[in-house]
Design a protein around this nucleic acid. Sequence first.
DNA 1: ATTTATCTTGACCGTTTGGTCAGGTTAAAA
DNA 2: TTTTAACCTGACCAAACGGTCAAGATAAAT
Lengths: 213, 213
Amino acid sequence: MTAIKSGLNGAHKAAIRQENEEQILAAAELVFADYGFKGATTARIAEIANVPKANVHYYFSTKEALYRRIMEDICDHWLEAAMTFENSSDPAEILRGYIEAKMDLSRARPHGSRVWAHEIIRGAKFSSDYISTTVKNWLDSRVVVINRWITEGKMDKVEPYSLMYMIFATTQHYADFARQIEIFNNDQPLSDTQFAEAKENVVRIILKGVGLS
Amino acid sequence: MTAIKSGLNGAHKAAIRQENEEQILAAAELVFADYGFKGATTARIAEIANVPKANVHYYFSTKEALYRRIMEDICDHWLEAAMTFENSSDPAEILRGYIEAKMDLSRARPHGSRVWAHEIIRGAKFSSDYISTTVKNWLDSRVVVINRWITEGKMDKVEPYSLMYMIFATTQHYADFARQIEIFNNDQPLSDTQFAEAKENVVRIILKGVGLS
DNA sequence: ATTTATCTTGACCGTTTGGTCAGGTTAAAA
DNA sequence: TTTTAACCTGACCAAACGGTCAAGATAAAT
């Protein structure tokens, strides 16, 4: 029956485990995105994952363990987008690629962005170590790159951190504040066309704003 | 004793009421900013306000009533900043004034911005009516103004909503993600000088980005 | 066929939650 | 001085919370 339900056939036990973990993780991401760590409940996660609450605790010992796992997954995806900052020589091309990658991530995985937003708004209690090491190192090295572009006269003299914060804020806004945007858009989620237009506008305004077009 | 504690003398009862309400409201704003509506607890609010929990319920019947009151106060301040969009003829001057007002609001009242962020991230359950009427009307009328500027050739042809979202996102980022910025800034909150520089950078990039400088 | 390891879950536990209330204190009005 | 209306709060309650557990079901290994 489980094989039928899950559509799997071979090593049942392993498949069941994977399926249940995935279902619980997906539900947890959604619930943490809505309510943050403290406001989320394991009962609600179990309900959405369609498993008994005790089963959630069978696969993930505690609510905190589940939350940390979700944060890890989010950081993995974050690093993907971060990579688009590498391996190119044209500043405009690099910045455009990075902004587009972050916009696409907000579109494809909005829940992850919202979990991250909750985490930071509350004071980064679980992730301050990760931010002050991995993320800060990544950011600081990009700041060096931007400063080099400025020195080389390739772009305007702007404070690199301010620029990066603007990119973070604007791209993540399309995930975190999607509901507000939807209301402004006559209670309709942005269509693919509208989103593509928004993405192009964001890229154009920022590139021109720093003298890269 | 209450008169001594509050430093008031005349109509004690009224003064006591005002003092306690203010203390509870300030505590509630902070706790809602940290945890959102669901994650916040009345016990924690009482603790920070330095009153017994029962006293919180004496002044504000329910947690929801207290939350709605906080949201109202935030919207009032929001409208203040919104007003800077009026009464001027120079687009650059208007946009600069609005961005600076929003940046200053993020600096002066970061908790309010964070409460608002929680509210929207969760899906605007309490405020969708307010957004779809008051806020949307305000936004749509500014969009008309921006489109007129474009028609008159005063600025680049940009999608006005994308521009406004960029301003919302970037300015509020300095309140909502203050903790992340602090970590990037070597665990130091932005100094007044740093914040002023950030504000000027935001203004400069956006104005130039839309062809207003 | 039997054992073993994993998966499943209703029932339960101690704690925390939002909210209530009776009985008290205080200050203004009569 | 007495009365009255507002303020104060420890103690309490039912519900919801994160987490546990024993007992059963299932599937792989022997």
